[in-house]
Amino acid sequence: MARVVVWHVPVTVTGRTTALRLFRLRDGRRCAVGFSSAAALTDLLGAGQAAVELGEPALRALTAPLGVRDLVLDPRLVAPPVADGTTRPSAADRPAAQLQRR
């Protein structure tokens, strides 16, 4: 019998309800995300991110009725870092339109 690999899947917990957390690909399509370890999930999404352990077949079965076909395993952050408000953005961080004003 084949061994099912277990993925750490981010969820949202509201009261007694637990829901899979879905993400978007660069082209806007929704996708499910799984991580090979709890540490990988924490590194990307933070220590407060709730997660469940699911095998890939279960994750695909849960997302298929929602029209979600894509599964991203061990994603990496592709967005620019969000400013925390303690530092001012440098000229290089400002949009080009602001740099062209005189």
Rank of each mutant, 00 (worst) to 15 (best):
S36P: 10
S37M: 10
S37R: 12
A38W: 12
A39M: 03
A39H: 11
A40L: 14
L41M: 09
D43A: 14
L44E: 02
L45V: 08
A47C: 03
A47S: 13
A47M: 04
A47L: 07
A47H: 13
Q49C: 14
Q49W: 07
A50S: 15
A51I: 02
A51Y: 15
V52N: 03
V52I: 14
V52P: 00
E53P: 04
E53K: 10
L54Q: 05
L54T: 07
L54A: 04
G55W: 13
G55P: 09
G55E: 14
E56I: 11
E56V: 15
P57N: 05
A58M: 04
A58R: 01
L59A: 01
L59I: 01
L59G: 02
L59T: 01
A61E: 09
T63D: 01
T63R: 01
T63Q: 03
A64E: 07
P65R: 08
P65D: 07
L66A: 12
L66P: 06
L66R: 12
L66K: 08
G67C: 04
G67D: 09
G67Q: 08
V68H: 03
V68S: 04
V68F: 03
D70W: 12
D70F: 12
L71N: 05
L71G: 08
L73T: 11
D74T: 05
P75A: 03
R76I: 06
L77I: 00
A79E: 13
A79M: 07
A79L: 15
P80Q: 02
P81L: 08
V82G: 01
A83H: 13
D84V: 07
G85M: 04
G85D: 03
T86P: 00
T86E: 09
P89G: 00
P89Y: 06
P89A: 00
S90D: 06
A91E: 09
A92Q: 10
A92V: 10
A92R: 13
D93I: 06
D93F: 14
D93Q: 15
R94D: 13
P95F: 07
P95M: 05
A97E: 14
A97Q: 14
